[in-house]
Amino acid sequence: MMSLTHLQRLEAESIHILREVVAEAENPVLLYSIGKDSSVMLHLALKAFAPAPLPFPLLHIASGWDFRAMLAHRDMMVARHGLTLLVQHNDEAAAAGVDPFDTPTPVYTRLMLTEQLKAALDHHGFDAAFGGGRRDEEKARAKERILSFRNAAHAWDPKTQRPELWRLYNARKPRGTSIRAFPLSNWTELDIWQYIALENIPIVPLYLAAPRPTVERDGMILMVDDDRMALRPGETAVERSIRFRTLGCYPLSGAVESRADTLDTVIQEMLLSTRSERLGRAVDHDPTASMEKKKQEGYF
């Protein structure tokens, strides 16, 4: 008797969630951060609605400080699949000099990412946004439902979460409120990597090790991705073999030194690593329970 593997089950579950939300929401969107989880989300979405084209656009909240390789990857995927891409950027804050080097990280994140996400959702009237969040990532995510409701101010209230039973998702919502949908809720980091390998999903090359110009700063290895990064006195760009476990704004993304230049060896290193995945992200270095707090403010 044919039996499904656990990845086939996870894939089927995610596709089911994508279809339910599309069937019941008025104006859905896929939040596309170009990272590995977003890449899996896009792949699943293309599968869920084939042979029809993707029935929703992609939304990229561009801080202006994404790795160049991320933007190239984004544009390549959009062209390959004929996708509709919306890019949201805070021109005003950027013009006022808000940048990841001199602006305190929580302020920078709020102005360039969180507030922009909210502005884009409001501007386009999206009532459901798909995100690549997984429950194994963080304690607050572990308690979030697959369909997570946000009030008109985009705030999450963990105390009023709806019961979510079986494969039944209640996507009805009062006017003005919206849904963040997490089809990857039940995936783990290993599942994501294994699925990328099995399905040959294109990912940003920065996930694989290569020699890249770097500096060591505040305990993190940062990649000098363009000449906007001013070197501090005493700093020189050093070429190191590095890769990234998570991607975002390059001045806030810490690299790991590695020679793993294939998916198998990346997975091997990840499984042997004694440090958790989000450690490379400056945005998560806020006090404990900060994710819960950020979600209450409207962060994905």
Partner: peptide, 9 residues
């Protein structure tokens, strides 16, 4: 307070 989902293998 709420259901938390945990993963291990």
């Amino acid at each position: 307070i709420d259901v938390a989902y945990r993963f291990f293998s």
